[in-house]
Simulated assay, not measured.
Amino acid sequence: MINFVKVKLEDAEALWHMMNNLDYETKYMLFEAGERKKDFSIIKSRIENVLKYNDFLCLAKDGDKIAGYISAEKGKLKRIEHTAYIVVGVLKEYTDKKIGSEFFKRLDLWAKENHIKRLELTVVCENDIAKHLYEKNGFEIEGIKKKSMYIDKKYVDEYYMAKIFE
């Protein structure tokens, strides 16, 4: 059974391993396979910032194993403090288990509690599965970021997507 929990500092090493595994499973995340430094202090620092600034980092756990995560980092400057940038990752073996949908339900609650008016993300244009998940959860395409990533020896575009709360 999958449990959804807020991140804790003790999760740093397991989260790094999950993210590293994800780098090998998909070409749609920012890091290429083998590019992520094995430095748990980077993850610990991110978790400390989540706790300090009341950002959002939710984990999907299967026992002690992290199956996926969703993070939202609020804008730190006054003019953008109503926004949050989203990153989502779920291991392949856990796809089609409604983890993404549950993540976005919890994200929406956090956004409302924190007076967030705009959630934003980017997604590789050819990543139809993720794009569909985002659209299903109220995100709309706002534009295209041309040649934003270099994958499989070619430049690819990303969609800018956002969800606006009234």
Rank of each mutant, 00 (worst) to 15 (best):
11 D>F: 03
32 E>S: 11
22 L>N: 02
56 F>Q: 08
70 I>Y: 04
93 E>T: 05
140 E>C: 11
147 K>A: 13
31 F>H: 13
91 L>M: 06
102 E>C: 04
13 E>D: 08
13 E>A: 09
97 K>C: 03
87 V>R: 09
18 M>N: 01
21 N>R: 14
61 K>S: 04
34 G>N: 01
79 R>H: 09
149 M>S: 08
161 M>V: 07
82 H>Y: 13
154 K>H: 13
153 K>G: 08
104 F>R: 09
36 R>H: 10
70 I>W: 07
107 L>G: 00
152 D>C: 07
52 K>F: 08
5 V>K: 14
69 Y>H: 06
111 A>V: 05
2 I>M: 15
87 V>K: 09
89 G>C: 02
9 L>S: 10
80 I>T: 14
137 N>M: 11
144 I>Q: 02
129 I>P: 05
74 K>F: 07
49 N>T: 09
118 R>I: 04
34 G>T: 02
84 A>K: 06
100 G>W: 02
72 A>S: 07
56 F>W: 08
92 K>E: 14
150 Y>I: 03
83 T>M: 05
76 K>T: 14
104 F>C: 05
69 Y>P: 00
51 L>E: 14
34 G>V: 06
160 Y>F: 15
8 K>I: 02
60 A>T: 10
134 Y>I: 06
46 R>S: 12
86 I>V: 15
123 V>E: 03
107 L>N: 03
145 K>L: 12
81 E>W: 12
105 K>F: 08
117 K>F: 00
37 K>E: 15
30 L>I: 08
112 K>P: 04
23 D>Q: 03
99 I>Y: 09
121 L>E: 03
31 F>C: 10
153 K>E: 15
70 I>E: 01
52 K>I: 03
133 L>K: 05
49 N>E: 15
122 T>Q: 03
33 A>E: 12
86 I>D: 12
128 D>A: 13
162 A>L: 10
77 L>Y: 14
136 K>W: 00
40 F>T: 15
98 K>Y: 01
46 R>F: 15
121 L>I: 03
18 M>W: 04
139 F>P: 04
120 E>M: 12
138 G>H: 08
77 L>T: 13
1 M>Q: 07
132 H>P: 00
133 L>S: 05
158 E>K: 05
2 I>W: 13
132 H>V: 05
59 L>W: 09
36 R>C: 01
11 D>C: 02
76 K>V: 11
145 K>I: 02
22 L>A: 06
114 N>M: 08
124 V>Y: 01
130 A>F: 11
74 K>Q: 11
145 K>F: 00
31 F>V: 01
150 Y>W: 04
10 E>S: 15
101 S>T: 07
55 D>M: 07
113 E>K: 13
120 E>F: 11
